[in-house]
């Protein structure tokens, strides 16, 4: 991934971090890396909207596809150095909810609503035939205070009932 971002245009609202949008079609075929494509990078609110408004809404897609929003410089794979010791909260969604949840999640990430310092790596939306899922990835899987805070913020920004079930998966176990 490109490490340097262009300076923001005058009048634009800078984000705390630079991010990239990615997607991976047919994630189960060949290697994940080969199917992974970067859409583009941005570091201001205005550039985010300009990308986002041109992206197809997840609920309009059929077939298997993963969307990612990750900090620039981190590839959205378990193998990346920033993800290797990390993990992710996974929330399964019944069909029809993905677009709204995904939008609320990425707005919370870009707006720094998680308040966990540098811990957030990114987020992923997986569209599948029966159900969709979203996940929030962080750097340090064994940092309990951080993972709990991410879980609670996720429930708040998505307006989920407190009883909602979510799984935390360690990337090192997925790699094994």
């Amino acid at each position: 991934a490109k490490k340097e971002s262009l300076p923001p245009d005058p009048g634009e609202h800078r984000l705390q971090f630079s991010y990239a949008f990615w997607y991976c079609r047919q994630p189960r075929l060949r290697s994940y890396d080969q199917n992974l494509k970067m859409i583009g990078t941005f570091n201001t609110v205005e550039k985010f909207w300009s990308f986002y408004s041109h992206l197809v809404r997840p609920s309009e897609l059929s077939g298997q596809i993963d969307f990612h929003l990750f900090k620039e410089g981190i590839r959205p794979m378990w193998e990346d150095e920033a993800n290797r010791n990390g993990g992710r909260w996974v929330l399964r969604l019944r069909k029809g909810l993905a677009s709204r949840c995904w939008e609320n999640l990425i707005l919370a990430i870009l707006g720094e609503q998680f308040m966990v310092g540098e811990e957030i790596c990114g987020a992923m939306l997986s569209v599948r035939s029966q159900e969709d899922s979203i996940s929030v990835w962080n750097k340090t899987a064994n940092d309990n205070a951080t993972t709990i805070r991410i879980r609670d913020t996720l429930k708040r920004v998505l307006n989920l009932p407190p009883s909602t079930h979510m799984d935390y998966k360690m990337n090192s176990e997925s790699l094994r």
Partner: peptide, 21 residues
């Protein structure tokens, strides 16, 4: 340093700014 924090409502407001079309 200071963290750049944006509420959802503010981000939504900027959606319709001329730059973000």
């Amino acid at each position: 340093g200071t963290r750049i924090i944006y509420e959802r409502a503010f981000l939504m407001q900027l959606r319709n700014s001329p730059v973000a079309k």
